[in-house]
Nucleic acid binder design. Structure first.
Lengths: 184, 184
DNA sequence: CCACTAACGCAAATTATTTGCTTTTGTTCA
DNA sequence: TGAACAAAAGCAAATAATTTGCGTTAGTGG
C-alpha cells in the first residue's frame, strides 16, 4: 500500500511532504523563481533530491502541487448582506488574488504541469465556493445565476484576462456580475 | 544592432531560428514530449546547444515561442454566409483546434513560459481574427457582438474549459454565441 | 513482536546547462 | 568593393541537475 495517496497525518510521508511544501513556499517568497531548484529545495527541507524526484517527478509537478494547495480556500465566502453582494465581494477578492503576482504565478504553475490533475483541483475549489453562494441564495429565495453561468461568464473572463492580458479591475468584475444576474 | 529582433529573411539568424523551430515541431510530432530536450533539438537542427540556450534561455521559452508561432492563423475566417454563421464556423474550428491534444499542449506551452509575451501574442491573433469578422458584419449591416463581448463570453469560457476541465462540444459553442448575439 | 514493503538516503553515472573564448557571418560606411 | 565592426554561432571545459541501483529506515498488518 502506498503511503503517499492519503498519507496518515503523523507519518513519515506526510512529514516529508510538509517540509518540502514549506520549503518551496519559503523559497518562492524570498528568492527569484529561476533560482528555485530541486537540489536547493531538498537541502532546505532536509531531504535528498532523489526523494523529490521520485515523488514528484520534476520541478513543474512539484510547483503545481504546491500552487494547487495554496489555491485551496481556507474558508467559505464571507457573509456581507444579500447573496449578490456576497458574490460581488467574493469575486472581487478572487480576482485580486489571482491577478496578483503570486496568484498569477500559481495559476501558471498549476497549468504548466504535464499532469492536469492540479488544474482540475483548482477549478473544483472555485466551483465549490460558488456552490456555497448559490445555496445561500436559494435558501433566502434570491434570484441568482447558475453555477455554469458564473463559471462561463464571470470566472472564465477574469482568468483569461489574467493569463493572456492584464489584470481586471473591480468595476470590470461588477459589470460581469451584473450581466449574469437574472431579472436585472 | 540585433539580428534576432526582426531578422532578415535570408540571414543566418533566421536560418537558425527556422531550423530550430522545425526541429521542435518534428520532435513534438514524433516523440514523447518528456524526451524533447535542448541537446536533442540542437542536434537535429544542426546547431550547438549553447546557441539555443543563449537565444531562448530554456526549453520552456523555446516551446512557448514555437507554440505561439503555430497558433498564428494562416488565413482570415472563411466566408460561408451570414456574419453570424461565419462566426459560428470560425469559433467551432478554433475550439476544436485548441481542445485537441496538440492545441492544448500549445496553450500550456505558451502560458508556462516566464515571459508572457507569447501569451499576449496568441490573444492578439484571436482578437485580430474576431476583428475581421466584426468588420465584415459592419460592412453588411448585420447586428453583431463587440470584440470585448466575444472575448469575454465566447473565447474565455472555451479556453477556461480546455485549460481546467474538458473539451467544449460544438453545441456548447453555439449556445455561447447565441447568448452574445444582439436582438436575438 | 515479526514479516513485509513503501518510501527514503546515499553515491555513482549520466545528462543538461553555463560560460569563456574563438570563429563565422552579416552590416555599415568609406 | 572591401575593411572595420558587431552580433550571433561554435567549441570545449566547468558546473549543476537528473537518474538509477542498492542498502536502510520506518510505518503497516498479521
Amino acid at each position: 500500500m502506498s503511503y503517499r495517496e492519503n498519507p496518515r497525518p503523523g507519518g513519515r510521508s506526510a512529514r516529508v511532504q510538509a517540509a518540502v511544501h514549506q520549503s518551496v513556499r519559503d523559497m518562492l517568497a524570498t528568492m527569484d523563481r529561476a533560482d528555485v531548484t530541486i537540489p536547493l529545495i531538498a537541502q532546505r527541507a532536509n531531504v535528498t533530491p532523489s526523494t523529490i524526484y521520485r515523488r514528484w517527478g520534476d520541478l513543474q509537478e512539484l510547483l503545481a502541487d504546491v500552487a494547487a494547495s495554496r489555491l485551496q480556500p481556507e474558508s467559505e465566502p464571507a457573509r456581507i448582506g444579500s447573496a449578490r453582494r456576497d458574490l460581488e465581494v467574493w469575486v472581487e477578492q478572487y480576482a485580486d488574488e489571482m491577478a496578483s503576482g503570486v496568484g498569477r504565478q500559481m495559476l501558471r504553475d498549476v497549468l504548466s504541469a504535464a499532469d492536469g490533475a492540479n488544474a482540475e483541483r483548482c477549478s473544483g475549489y472555485t466551483q465549490h465556493q460558488l456552490a456555497a453562494l448559490i445555496a445561500r441564495a436559494q435558501k433566502s429565495g434570491e434570484p441568482f445565476p447558475t453555477q455554469a453561468e458564473l463559471m462561463d461568464h464571470v470566472i472564465s473572463p477574469i482568468i483569461y484576462r489574467i493569463l493572456f492580458d492584464q489584470a481586471p479591475g473591480a468595476d470590470y468584475v461588477r459589470e460581469l456580475i451584473a450581466k449574469v444576474m437574472p431579472q436585472s
